[in-house]
Every structure is written in C-alpha cells, then in structure tokens.
Simulated assay, not measured.
Amino acid sequence: MAAAVIAAVGLVSTQAVAEDAFERMLSEKTLRIGWIMSPPGSQKDPITQELKGYYIDIISFVLKQVNVEPEFIETQWSTFVAGLQAKQFDIVAAGTFASIPRAASVAFTSPIFYLGYDATVRAGDDRFKSLDDIDQEGVTVAVVQGTGGHEFVKRTFSKANIVALSTNDLSSSLIAVQSGRADVAVEDAWATRRYIQTHPELVSLFSNTPYNLQPIAWATRYEDRDLREFLNTALEWMRINGKIEEFVKQYPASGRYVLSPTYHAVE
C-alpha cells in the first residue's frame, strides 16, 4: 500500500513538472505566445501574413538567445485572460496594461515601459478641457472593450454614456468619433497619436500630458514563476542595454512612452 502511495505521489510530481511552461519551453524548444493586433506593436502583413512589430521583435529576440522558436497564437483584448488561463498559450506578449483588476487573474512581467491614455474629439469641438468635462450626461465616450481604457472609463466616469466596442482594432473608438457616433474616444496615447497623424479632422486633448500612466507588461499564469523570472531577467537586460528602444524606434508613429515612471509624492 505504501509503495502504491509513493508511486502515485511520484507520478503527480512528474506530471506537475511536465506541465511547467518554462520546462516545456526548454525541452520542446518552443513557446506558445498569445498576440493581439495592435500596430505598430504587433500586426500581420495582409499580403505575406508575416507578423511584425516591436512586441513581436522583442519576444523573438529573447527566445532566439536560448534557441527557442515562438509559436504565435492570435487572441483578443476581451478574451486574452481566459485564453491564458485555459492554456491556449503560455504568455501574452502584447501591449497589455498591468492594472490592478487584471492582476487578480493573471501575473505580469516587470514593465517593458510605461504608457498613458489620451482622449480624442472632433476638430472644433471645444466642450472638453478636462476629464471632468467629459464625464457629463449627454456625452458619449467610445472605448475598445477589454482594454485598459475600458477599465479606466468604467472606474472613472459615472455620468457619461460609455460605448464599449467589441473589436481588436484600437482605432475603432476614434473612428466612432470621426463618424459622429461618439463625442470622445479614450485610447492609449500611442494608438491615438498614430491615428490622428493622418486624420486632421480629429484632435487630441492630452497629447502632451497623457493621464492614467500605467506599466505595459506581458501576462503569464501565476503558477509559471520560472517562466516569468526568465522573462523578467531578459527584459531587464534589454532595458539597460537599450535594446527595447532600439526595436521600438524601428517603427514610425511610436507615440509617447517613458522607460521610468514619475511617482506622485505624498504631501
């Protein structure tokens, strides 16, 4: 009986090790990576179907150092947490805001950089000078469902009408303003700047002072500590050696981001 119990415990232990994402990555020489369409960070060439973008470049560079091939699996802003928990992939290498609500479900790597949010209106619409001006009855705010911006407006706005768009396209909220279906679009400063550069009929409200600054990090499962430690070490090496900036600056319209946050002092 004792021998059977010991054997059973050994079997469970062996299975646990076999299911560890980091050990599997090293033994199988591949890592399943969730990615989300979000130019210029990650996108698919419509002709060649090749993936490109600085998030794609960064994770590919990291894995190349240990002779591991990336297996990219497309996901969405509104479903990437569920996909990660269901083990459809082992990491989500996208421009995900490491927010408190998300941290209740997934564990994040150390920040890649920090990014804030912006608000966009139609040119000539002078009603809005602050976030308080936006949060008014009769004002419609468009945001992409499942994004950090969606979390922000739900948490911050109590009077405005919030329209959450079920899509992966971060420009959808700006298109809603452009077409008159919404008064204000809330999106990260990066996506906002990229879009309005070619659409002068829209103007940014906070381009020089993005608000709600948050860390951009990659999502993993809490139990995959070894994988997360490996990624943290790799990202730290890339930060101090300028590799992250090197990859980011290869793409135009990169927008405003910072490598180190500015903390608010307590009076």
Rank of each mutant, 00 (worst) to 15 (best):
K44A: 14
K44G: 04
I47H: 12
K52D: 12
G53E: 02
Y55F: 13
D57H: 06
D57R: 04
I58C: 03
L63C: 05
K64G: 11
Q65T: 15
V66G: 10
V66N: 11
N67C: 05
N67P: 01
V68T: 14
V68W: 07
P70F: 06
E71T: 12
I73F: 09
Q76T: 15
W77Y: 12
W77V: 07
S78K: 14
S78E: 14
T79H: 11
T79V: 11
F80D: 02
V81A: 07
V81T: 14
A82I: 13
A82K: 13
A82R: 15
G83T: 01
K87Q: 13
K87W: 03
I91D: 02
I91F: 01
V92G: 01
V92T: 15
A94T: 01
G95L: 13
T96G: 05
T96E: 11
F97S: 09
A98D: 08
I100K: 15
P101L: 08
V106Y: 07
A107N: 08
A107V: 06
A107I: 02
F108N: 00
T109A: 00
T109M: 05
P111K: 10
I112Q: 08
Y114C: 01
Y114V: 06
Y114P: 03
Y114L: 05
L115W: 08
L115S: 11
G116D: 02
V121Y: 02
R122W: 08
G124A: 08
D126T: 14
D126Y: 12
S130I: 04
S130V: 04
S130A: 03
D132K: 14
Q136T: 09
E137A: 15
V139L: 02
T140C: 07
V141I: 12
V141W: 04
V141P: 04
A142I: 02
A142P: 04
Q145C: 04
Q145P: 06
G146V: 03
G148A: 07
H150V: 00
V153K: 06
K154I: 11
R155T: 11
R155S: 15
T156D: 05
K159F: 08
K159Q: 15
A160D: 09
A160L: 09
N161Q: 14
I162Q: 05
V163W: 08
L165C: 02
